[in-house]
């Protein structure tokens, strides 16, 4: 399966692949574009990100403050992608640069960005990831690139 950017659907991709798919501009962390990414999360609520995002994921968000960088730092996130052509404020960029956190800007809205990456094979973060019992709170994950209609369990 190929998407419009011509990237083969797969479960691991680099930040450079993600830039290409999302037509993104790199604000900082250009030296880390060859990092491999396996999961992503799209969210504007940092508390939910802290609760439900797998370490090493990328975060897609419309928020542009320093707390996004702090959240990424605590979770060892690989990059933050700011959607809808928003420009992050200077203090956010400064903090991200000091932490070596790549910041990417995409012109597309959150839903479209997530959809494009999902279709290209990038998985989501399913369930609670910090819980001591990792088997808890798991739901059947949707399969990237193979969604037919609606949420899993609703269409069949």
């Amino acid at each position: 399966m190929n998407d419009s950017a011509g990237i083969q659907a797969r479960s691991t991709m680099t930040l450079a692949d993600i830039c290409k798919i999302l037509n993104a501009e790199v604000i900082c962390g250009e030296d880390k574009l060859d990092e491999q990414v396996t999961t992503a999360c799209g969210c504007d609520l940092m508390s939910d990100v802290l609760a439900f995002t797998l370490p090493g994921s990328i975060l897609l968000t419309g928020l542009t403050n320093q707390q996004v960088v702090r959240t990424a730092e605590m979770l060892d996130l690989k990059a933050v992608i700011i959607v809808r052509n928003k420009r992050p404020d200077e203090s956010m960029v400064e903090l991200a640069c000091s932490k070596g956190l790549p910041i990417l800007l995409s012109p597309y809205p959150l839903y479209e960005c997530c959809g494009m990456l999902f279709a290209a094979g990038l998985k989501g973060c399913n369930g609670s990831v910090h819980a001591k019992d990792e088997s808890s709170q798991k739901i059947e994950p949707a399969k990237p690139g193979e969604m037919t209609c609606g949420a899993p369990g609703l269409g069949d």
Binding site: L45, M46, D48, L50, A51, L63, N65, S128, H130, K132
Partner: peptide, 16 residues
């Protein structure tokens, strides 16, 4: 608006 107040703080701390 800053991305907090989702009501996940204490539950999150408890699960961690």
């Amino acid at each position: 608006e800053m991305g907090f107040g989702a009501g996940m703080g204490l539950p999150n701390m408890q699960s961690c």
